[in-house]
Design a protein around this nucleic acid. Structure first.
Lengths: 167, 167
DNA sequence: ACGAACTTTCAATAACTATTGAAAGTTCGG
DNA sequence: CCGAACTTTCAATAGTTATTGAAAGTTCGT
């Protein structure tokens, strides 16, 4: 397999994976492109390489900046802005975990807390409801703790600990 | 807060969460409804409760069956089919992890393996590419192992181990 | 083997999300 | 303060995914 094909294929696959991680397809493709590129790229180059419009490139670059997984850099003597991706996969995963925790886990935890002190009207339905909410809350809180640890941890420490538990 | 409101709110919130976990909104709502319901429900009841059409109900129930997170049950003397959800949140999470591993991690691992033995043409680009692919592959494989452990593990063992590492 | 009770399918369409590209906005050297 | 170089916005539109509901299919008791 030739390098250009391989690059193409990786960008596609990364696009799909990113999509299921909460990014959108283009966002993930831009990210993949920046990941494999040894130097920072300009909007122009990204547009070209992925055959997308200026507006699209701009919006998705901004979203990636928001997620904190790419950085804007300036090159001396150039007016254009360039972008480069965090290359450390571990740091990337931590960043994604952080964002998703904020976007997904926090809202459900809020609802679970709210809904947890509903008054049961004595019906079987409402008793079951309370029970399920309690269980969900417990689970969500444990997951939150685990994520928190993941987000704060150092790579080597984390994998060492995890490898131990995988035995 | 009253029970009916609380139920409504939980179903909405669960719908959103489910969505970001790879289910679709209706699928997740049906699931939430079955979670909080003490008895198994018929298609009819699900349609009514969530105000959705027969076709929609049917398709999403089937998808939930495919994912293995709800079960079809028959009630003696009734011709209709009823559905109930796995109530154990842990078992549910394991099931979702299993499905997502199959749908997401496996394809990218396949691509990474394929792309890993690209011949470098000596360019800086292709060298960087190889480096990144190697890192990604390493990460994806470790994650795969971790997921595997999660999927196969028992609840108490898992949380005990995890709680230890969270210290 | 008929028909009532129920489930499944699927073409039409509604709802949502992503993309384009031209226009408006910003920045900066001279 | 002008205009070239660049970035951002946004209304129009393309593309995708979800939903409906009527029609076709299945199952089962009699």
């Amino acid at each position: 397999m030739k390098y250009t094909e391989a690059k193409e294929e990786l960008i596609q696959a990364w696009g799909n994976l990113g999509y299921s991680w909460g990014l959108n397809k283009t966002m993930a493709q831009i990210h993949a492109l920046l990941m494999v590129s040894p130097k920072a790229l300009s909007t122009e180059e990204i547009m070209q390489d992925l055959s997308i419009s200026r507006g699209n490139a701009n919006m998705n670059i901004r979203a990636l900046l928001d997620w904190g997984i790419i950085a804007r850099i300036s090159v001396a003597g150039e007016r254009k802005e360039f972008f480069k991706s965090e290359k450390n996969v571990w740091a990337l995963a931590r960043q994604v975990a952080k964002e998703r925790r904020k976007r997904e886990l926090e809202p459900i935890l809020k609802v679970l807390k709210e809904v947890n002190d509903v008054q049961t009207d004595g019906s079987e339905e409402s008793k079951e409801f309370k029970k399920v909410v309690k269980e969900l809350k417990n689970f969500a809180e444990k997951s939150d703790g685990l994520l928190e640890t993941f987000i704060r941890s150092e790579e080597s420490w984390f994998w060492n600990t995890v490898l131990k538990m995988m035995k």
